[in-house]
C-alpha cells in the first residue's frame, strides 16, 4: 500500500512545502491550464524546465516521482496507441486498411506523453507537499465567495478533510481484515472471477461496519467537544500569503510570458 504516491503527503520543510496551500492550488491549476495551450517543442521544453525547477525545490528523491508515474503508465500507453494509429494527416508513414501511422500522429503521441507526465507530476507535487487538511482549508478559503450563493462551503470542506483523514485509516483497516480472513484460509489472489467476487464479502462487511462505527464515534467526539456547525468555527491555522507566495506567483507570471512568446513565435 506504501507504493501509492499520487495523493500522498510527505512531510518536509522545503520551500514548496512552506508555500500557502492556496498558492499551490492556484498555481497548479494555472500551470495545467497553460499546458493545454502548448503546441510546439519549445513550449513543452519551457514547461518541462519550469517543472524541473519546482521538483528541485521540493527536495524529494527523484525516485519518488517515478513511483508516482509508474501506476499510470498503462493509461499513458493506451492514449499513445490511440494517438499513433488514429490521427489523420500527411505524410503517411505506414498504412494497413484503415489503420495508419502518420507523422503528425507520432508527434502528437509524444506531445501527449509529455503533457500527461507534466500534469501528473505537477499535481503530485501539490499533494506531496501539502497536508490534506491544508488542501481542505485552502479550498474552503478559495470557494469562500460561493457562500453568498448559499453553498455550504465550510461543511463541504470539513467533509472533505474528514474523508481524506479516513483514507489511510481505512486502508490500514482493510489490510488488517484481509490478514484476518487470510488466516482463516481465504485467498484473495487465486480462483475464478466468481470466487474472487465472493471473497470480497468477508472483506467489505467488516470494513463497512467498522467505518460506520468510526463515523459515529467521530461524530460523538466532535459534539462532545462542542461542535455545532462548521460556519462559526475559528481556525487553528490562519492562512496568509507570505513573500514566498508572491515570489512564486511572480515566477508563474514570468513562465507564462516566456511560454506565450514561444507559443506566438511557434518555436
Amino acid at each position: 500500500m506504501n507504493s501509492i504516491v499520487i495523493g500522498r503527503y510527505i512531510p518536509g520543510n522545503s520551500w514548496i512545502h512552506r508555500l500557502d496551500p492556496r498558492t499551490k492550488i492556484i498555481l497548479t491549476f494555472v500551470y495545467i491550464m497553460i499546458l493545454l495551450f502548448a503546441n510546439s517543442w519549445g513550449t513543452y521544453l519551457v514547461a518541462t524546465i519550469f517543472l524541473a525547477g519546482v521538483i528541485y525545490l521540493t527536495k524529494q528523491p527523484l525516485n519518488l516521482y517515478w513511483q508516482g508515474i509508474k501506476p499510470i503508465l498503462w493509461l499513458i500507453l493506451f492514449t499513445v496507441i490511440l494517438q499513433i494509429f488514429f490521427t489523420d494527416g500527411q505524410p503517411v508513414l505506414w498504412q494497413w486498411r484503415f489503420i495508419k501511422v502518420t507523422l503528425p500522429g507520432l508527434i502528437n503521441a509524444i506531445y501527449v506523453v509529455i503533457r500527461f507526465v507534466l500534469i501528473i507530476l505537477m499535481s503530485t507535487i501539490m499533494t506531496l507537499t501539502t497536508p490534506p487538511t491544508s488542501i481542505a482549508s485552502a479550498l474552503e478559503s478559495l470557494l469562500g465567495p460561493l457562500k453568498k450563493l448559499k453553498v455550504p462551503v465550510a461543511e463541504l470542506a470539513l467533509m472533505l478533510s474528514i474523508a481524506l483523514r479516513f483514507v489511510p485509516l481505512l486502508m490500514d483497516e482493510t489490510q488488517k481484515i484481509m490478514n484476518a480472513q487470510k488466516s482463516r484460509g481465504m485467498s484473495f489472489s487465486t480462483g475464478g472471477p466468481i470466487k474472487r467476487a465472493k471473497a470480497v464479502v468477508p472483506l467489505l462487511v467488516p470494513l463497512f461496519v467498522g467505518a460506520l462505527q468510526r463515523a459515529l464515534d467521530l461524530a460523538n467526539a466532535m459534539e462532545v467537544r462542542g461542535f455545532k456547525d462548521a460556519d462559526h468555527r475559528t481556525r487553528y491555522r490562519i492562512l496568509a500569503y507570505h513573500r514566498a507566495d508572491y515570489i512564486s506567483g511572480l515566477m508563474m507570471v514570468l513562465f507564462i510570458i516566456v511560454f506565450s512568446l514561444i507559443n506566438l513565435k511557434g518555436w
Partner: peptide, 22 residues
C-alpha cells in the same frame, strides 16, 4: 499458493478479532 497449507496449521487470532466478523 504454498501458504494456504501453512495457514491450515497455524490459527491466528488478531487484536480485536471481533472486527473480522461478517
Amino acid at each position: 499458493k504454498q501458504l494456504v497449507a501453512l495457514r491450515a496449521q497455524v490459527g491466528m487470532v488478531f487484536q480485536f478479532p471481533e472486527s473480522q466478523l461478517f
